[in-house]
Amino acid sequence: MIPRPIPERFRLRRTMMFMNAQKPGLIKDAYIYGVDSIILDLEDAVAENQKDAARFSLYHALKSIDYGDTEVIVRINGLDTPHWEEDIRCAVAGGADGIRIAKCESAQDVKTVEEHTLAAEREFGVTEGRTLLMAALESPKGILHAYEIGEASPRMFGVAISGGDFRKSMHVQMIPGGIEINTARSLMLLAARAAGIQCFDTMYPHLNDKEGFEAEVRQNHAMGFDGKSLINPRQIRYVHETFAPTPKEITNAEKIVRAYKEHAKSGVGVFTVDGKMVDIPFAEDAKRVITLARACGVYHGDL
């Protein structure tokens, strides 16, 4: 058995890649791509008559494959199916880092999954509270309840919008620029920040449309997302590059943090850096940039 480190509720999750739990060829070497998180999928990728077999495959993958630093999340089937309870038992027994709740619509959905997760942790001797939770919001109701969903459990680390189902429920098609989904993205981002959790965008389905994908990633970053769901390893690098702070941003953040430390000592709260006003909120944001840059491997300084 591979002992996995204790999951961190807040860690770098720029990329979360879906992998079909029923396909051994995929899950056996999912960690080599350098993705931040993999999502082993028991839901949509697994045919209805293979749900049982997928769990056996998932359990053994969790127990015997060394995923290293890659976070391992299991996407369970929706609460309106006969599968989710056993999905939770399997994921928890296998020692997954977290569970992604499909089609989450309310705080109660999160609480229901939390109850079963806790029960499974007790049943299988897993440290109580170890298994993290995230929710996929796939309907207007889910989006409008994003704040309560995010606050529903101390295990919750994030919410993600699921574009396919969401667009279906809104009777719209995917449009470049995202006019059909950007209100939902924005509402979810607001709710996630208010609840103090992370926020992830939906996967981009057109694998051969590199330009469209990259434009969406840049927009995600500009809107304030923490990361994005992916469906193919070749999408990873661009997201990592785009989400890493630029050298200019890092230099600037470094200057602000250093100046802030100097000024704080002498009791000055507001000052200027390169002719721009800086006060405490700027300093906090600069610290966040440094932390992110370090996590992305592009900052090796001493701050």
Binding site: F56, S57, Y59, H60, S64, E86, R89, F124
Partner: peptide, 29 residues
């Protein structure tokens, strides 16, 4: 060309299916 863990998973799934108990309350571990 299955890994050991895949082979085990498939054998278990086949046996549990043959007994009609592959869907629920699996004795994980």
């Amino acid at each position: 060309g299955a890994l050991d863990c895949t082979l085990k998973a498939r054998i278990e799934a086949a046996v549990f299916r043959s007994c009609g108990v592959s869907q629920k309350n699996i004795p994980w571990g």
